[in-house]
């Protein structure tokens, strides 16, 4: 019975995220706490499930940027309420990603989308922001002991900065300890190959798939 009732709440959370309905997400999240349901499961089976469904609609080109940003707001509104109630052990062993937009570019919509979907996929994402000098990205990755550096740019003129990040990693001896993935409008697989990146993702949902592939699905295993 209680499982069933729990699932009704989780489904309500998932639907509200998909419907971009921040208010309902907050209401249901408070009820989850009040009813003492498992907060971690509410996140996984409710909020994250809703965001994954939104990501699928984005991939199917039924949702676009405005919709996905609103779903993301709804998901984070729920996470803010539920996160304090989850058991720390439940969130160990997550792969750490530092993400940012390279120097010269201040467009960060794409980066923010990737961050949201990686959060939803169970990665521990540290957002470095936009217009970042290559050194700063590498320093942050080393300091955070990141497993992944995810780089984005929207401008052709700033693509070379991505190559600099990889070069600095090589020179400082850290290249093998971190995977570098790149994405953004003007990029391509051949560009990623040229600069020696570990992968290229043409869209935000494909960035999640790419990382799952690079880590051979060890994240949720």
């Amino acid at each position: 019975m209680s499982d069933n009732k729990e699932q009704i709440f989780f489904t309500a959370l998932s639907d509200a995220v998909l419907d971009m309905d921040e208010t309902t997400v907050e209401e249901v999240a408070h009820k989850v706490i009040k009813e003492k349901f498992d907060a971690y499961r509410a996140i996984e089976n409710g909020l994250v499930d809703g965001m994954n469904r939104a990501g699928q609609l984005f991939e199917d080109e039924e949702y676009f940027i405005p919709e996905i940003l609103l779903c993301s707001d709804a998901m984070y509104a729920g996470l803010n309420i539920l996160n304090p109630y989850i058991n720390r052990q439940q969130q160990s062993a997550r792969k750490k990603v530092v993400i940012g937009v390279v120097e010269g570019d201040t467009h960060d919509i794409g980066k923010n989308l990737v961050k949201t979907l990686l959060d939803a996929a169970g990665f521990d994402v540290i957002d470095l922001g936009r217009d970042l000098p290559p050194c700063q990205i590498v320093d942050a990755a080393i300091a955070e002991q990141a497993d992944v550096i995810a780089l984005s740019t929207l401008m052709t003129t700033t693509m070379d900065a991505m190559a600099s990040v990889i070069k600095i990693l090589q020179e400082s001896g850290y290249r093998d300890s971190v995977k570098v993935i790149v994405g953004g409008g003007p990029l391509s697989q051949s560009f990623a190959d040229r600069i020696g990146a570990d992968g290229y993702a043409p869209s935000a949902p494909s960035a999640v798939k790419l990382l799952h592939k690079l880590f051979q699905d060890t994240i949720h295993a």
């Binding site: 971009m20 940003l69 609103l70 960060d108 919509i109």
Partner: peptide
């Protein structure tokens, strides 16, 4: 701020 702007086109 483009993050707000894109959302507000809808909201």
């Amino acid at each position: 701020d483009p993050m707000s702007f894109y959302k507000e086109l809808r909201k």
